[in-house]
Design a protein around this nucleic acid. Structure first.
Lengths: 338, 338
DNA sequence: CACGATTATTGGAACGTTCCAATGGAAGGC
DNA sequence: GCCTTCCATTGGAACGTTCCAATAATCGTG
């Protein structure tokens, strides 16, 4: 276990050839004779030889690795996006290094610094919380694709996102169409995605002549935050008959709060989420939501990244994917209207 | 962007010192004079210098990286365990490389091979699906800790796990104590963790004289599998009044199936899960479960790993953590008994 | 059957770091 | 003012690969 790992030299001398030939053989070059190839294969197997990725990366200046930063592994949204990224990255023969910033910009920065020290050839940032300045600094060093956000534009920063304003409008219009008037928005906190969804809500309310009814409660993007925000909304003198919540996970928290207050979903309060996590489809939860094509977004991100790795100076692409309203059982007409 | 990265030589010549001194300064050695240190710091900042981790790892034969394999990022269980691992690993000044095997042994093998090529100094396997033989091969090459499983023993393989047999018994006894007799087990498929939980169920049933009532439905560890298994259980001539499901995520699927069949939880059917995911505490779900101390298991795993990195030849430790029954709202006495 | 063309193989330089033994200079002691 | 001690600093050799230009071996071909 503590013995030094066998190197290419060890394999070479055991197989009776030069290290260069071993190097060729290990990478499957056709110029190696069958006899040598077999001898080398055998020697490598006997010794348990593994190429040293650090040495390889140093010598040929390619790490064949891309770095992925995700906001928070607890939200299943990111697992779905990651699936898409991974399948594409693996198809290219690359590896991914995955890190999380836990929604802390300083930690994100530190984790990305580490990825760059590992010489990743590209970066995919899923819901990062970096400042525009540091995002641009990273993007200047290495091809970078941002998923989920499209607020920071830079000359070489590609983005994959849905239109959160439109999505927020979609959710709100659905509630309005059902006959709701007192519709609260449980906002997702201080980040552009949440702000856009809120903006969509406000626009839909204004357009329906309900600007005065608009009520935005400060929340967050976790179940706990959604729970707290919903409790607050329900404690008001004229509690809402419907809530548009900033994301699905927070919506689950909100539903819990509604039910705990003795009200029924959707009988007394309708709830709409955002994201389209698989869990929301469970009959128990049955959450109406604005669904993003998460896995596809991951795949698109990886595809853009590889395109930019090949042609680094091309202009920025901003890919917009379509989100759709998925009506399930957590929304219904308000009691008074039903 | 495509310009070659500045190296330690570039920093050295700009600061007017030797590369060796830059190397020392970058690592914060006390033998560097204040003047040199400042000049080097300045030069490095000007150039945007980043040490090359590959070169460093090659030269000093330490990657300061540990590899983590998790079964499936979609299950929040793993996010919790990862939190524990990450906090400990970061505290040691190490990085983690995270990979997933998607429950496919071949892919797990391939991902671990890659981790070893990157010269990780240790491996943490969370719910792996490797064969005993390949697990032992990896453990022979690098310090290895297995979390969640304790079925494969090797001379130098540490494990962190709960007692799944005892946990299964705990869950089943809870249902028996409530007065249930027709208790089904929705099993978790062909893996040791699930088999142990099933064994616990069987033992509890036998001990209560209910061996003849034992009914095990083949399921899996995902929501979809739990849903399907529950439907099957409910379709039997004498459907169960209670279900012990192999894990929480599958339990959520099972609850969905119960409710969809027009039955209430826990009114008509009680449901117990396993794991203790945060989501289960939401009032909507309110899942009775056998809770493992997930984050602590992650921390313990990392601690064991570092202990073994320091002293590689010590005998294997098998850390057993205590799981506890958390009674919430998804279980109640059977209708006939209430 | 010698000759160029091809094919398989090789040694050395490079990649960017760290380590180590060696150097130069300043300071301290007598 | 010379010798020792100490300190900051240095150049060269590693680390394990890949790349490249050069060599050795094999092969038709006229």
């Amino acid at each position: 276990m503590r013995e030094p790992r066998p190197t290419i030299h060890d394999v070479a001398s055991r197989a009776g050839v030069s290290k260069s030939l071993v190097s060729l053989a290990m990478r499957g070059s056709p110029k190696v004779s069958d006899a040598s190839r077999e001898a080398i294969r055998q020697a490598a197997a006997d010794l348990g030889y593994r190429p040293n990725a650090a040495a390889r990366s140093l010598a040929d200046r390619h790490s064949r690795t891309i770095g992925v930063l995700v906001l928070d592994l607890h939200n299943p949204v990111f697992a779905d996006i990651l699936d898409g990224i991974q399948s594409e990255v693996r198809a290219q023969g690359y590896s991914t290094m995955l890190v999380t910033g836990a929604a802390d910009p300083d930690r994100e920065q530190a984790e990305l610094d580490k990825l760059l020290e590992f010489q990743v050839e590209g970066l995919i940032l899923v819901s990062h919380r970096l400042s525009p300045a540091s995002l641009r600094r990273f993007a200047a060093e290495v091809p970078t694709v941002v998923v989920t956000r499209d607020d920071i534009h830079g000359p070489r920063i590609d983005t994959i996102s849905n239109d959160d304003v439109a999505g927020g409008t979609l959710a709100t219009q659905h509630l309005i169409a059902l006959g709701h008037r007192r519709i609260a928005h449980l906002a997702g906190g201080d980040n552009p995605v949440a702000r856009h969804r809120e903006q969509g809500y406000r626009e839909a309310m204004a357009e329906a002549g309900l600007a005065d009814n608009a009520s935005v409660i400060t929340g967050g993007l976790t179940d706990v935050a959604g729970y707290a925000a919903a409790r607050q909304a329900l404690a008001e003198p004229h509690p809402p008959t419907a809530m548009f919540v900033a994301n699905d996970i927070a919506a689950l928290g909100a539903i819990a709060a509604v039910q705990e207050s003795g009200r029924a979903v959707p009988g007394d309060v309708s709830v709409v989420g955002y994201d389209g996590i698989a869990l929301g489809a469970l009959r128990t939860l049955n959450l109406t939501t604005v669904a993003q094509p998460l896995e596809r977004m991951g795949r698109l991100a990886a595809q853009r990244l590889f395109a930019r790795i090949v042609l680094p100076r091309q202009r920025a692409h901003h890919v917009l994917v379509e989100s759709t309203l998925v009506v399930r059982g957590s929304t219904a007409p308000p009691r008074s209207a039903g």
